[in-house]
Design a protein around this nucleic acid. Structure first.
Lengths: 205, 205
DNA sequence: CAGTAGTTTCAGCATACGCTGAAATTAGTT
DNA sequence: AACTAATTTCAGCGTATGCTGAAACTACTG
């Protein structure tokens, strides 16, 4: 139809490519996503993908780039007074995942993490940014990492079952019910005394 | 070196292929695993892969096939009296994942679940077999699925962080410490009263 | 020892992949 | 209107993929 040369405003094609790539990686996975299919989904010439993102890992990097102030609401939960912080944290995470755009990025990262070091790096970074924050205020230093890890454990399990695999009752319950069910656990991991069975300090790496 | 025709005892080559495929899928992932590379790792002609497993999905199916009495220890935990069943369940799951052979199969399934329906099916089946069992004894019917889902949530989170991603303190703590930390949560999900905030019955699908 | 079923090897087809280089086209500047 | 920089298209390279068909070989049966 139209010939060569630029069209639309600057970065418009790049955005279409990025959106198509995110959708594909978040559903089919990174290795199963071909640049040709991405270009086709975006309605764009395959060469453009290389023009804007150089290589396939370059595309992945862009796909995983969180938008500005990503998860600010989750970080805000960390400011709550400690006795209601657990519940606030669960709520914030649910809201984050209920947003399709954010969920797509997170899904892409999670699906790719086990196979691509770059994705694993992003995942670790998000953990530090989101989970460690909730625990960093008003907690002693030696327990901080352990409590963060415990919280991550419960949140990740929720995410996998509800949003990634969509398995079990937890996947179909309304968000409020999920909050009521999981908030107590998070709160315990956050502030309740930990078992002292195996050495008082949690043997960090 | 050697010519064509059979060698070794029957099924020996098939086993080598299966082992190589399992290792590759459990680390690189299903789509990133090529039949040629599997054959090379197994020290075998690529054609043999098709001879024994027909297609690539066929190979995957075989890779995900759990050995006989897989997770029998986990199912046995379901027989424990209810007040110590939560702890027994955590212990059994840790032991299962501490076994390299079992862990490889489970890892292959988990890494593939989000992308291949066949893997998702296996995952659901393992859930029914392992998680639902622990909850099926001495519990009323309407709470059963919800409690199973909650337990799965916590166990999956543990598995992802400790065995798949190896992230956080939970990944480096000795198994006994992990048991002490998570058993109370599982026990609560198993037998403690659930919050009644949003309708008494958990709105099944 | 002939015959047969099962196993292994090999050559190759059709397709897809990531990526490159250069030409064609556009929009904006002077 | 000439020039320039950025964008889009196109043709194609080298390689890899899943899979097929048939030949070569082994071990066993009669």
């Amino acid at each position: 139809m139209t010939g060569r040369g630029p069209r639309g405003e600057r970065g418009e094609q790049a955005d279409k490519i990025l959106a198509a790539a995110r959708r594909s990686i978040a559903t089919r996975g990174y290795t199963a996503t071909s640049l040709r299919s991405v270009a086709q989904d975006a309605g764009v010439d395959p060469g453009l993908v290389h023009y804007y993102f150089r290589t396939k890992p370059g595309l992945l990097e862009a796909v995983m780039e969180p938008p500005e102030a990503f998860g600010a609401a989750v970080a805000a939960a960390a400011e709550q007074p400690i006795h209601q912080r657990g519940r606030a944290f669960v709520q914030a995470n649910l809201r984050l995942w209920e947003d399709p755009a954010a969920a797509e990025i997170l899904r892409a990262i999670i699906l790719t993490a086990a196979q691509e070091p770059a994705a694993m790096k992003r995942l670790r970074q998000l953990f530090s940014q989101l989970v460690l924050a909730v625990v960093s205020h008003s907690l002693t230093d030696d327990e901080r990492n352990l409590r963060a890890s415990l919280i991550a454990t419960q949140i990740v399990g929720l995410v996998m079952n509800r949003y990634i695999w969509q398995v079990g009752d937890i996947a179909v319950l309304p968000a409020d019910a999920v909050t009521d069910l999981l908030a107590p656990t998070i709160q315990r991991y956050l502030a309740d005394p930990l078992p002292t069975t195996l050495g008082d300090r949690p043997t960090p790496r």
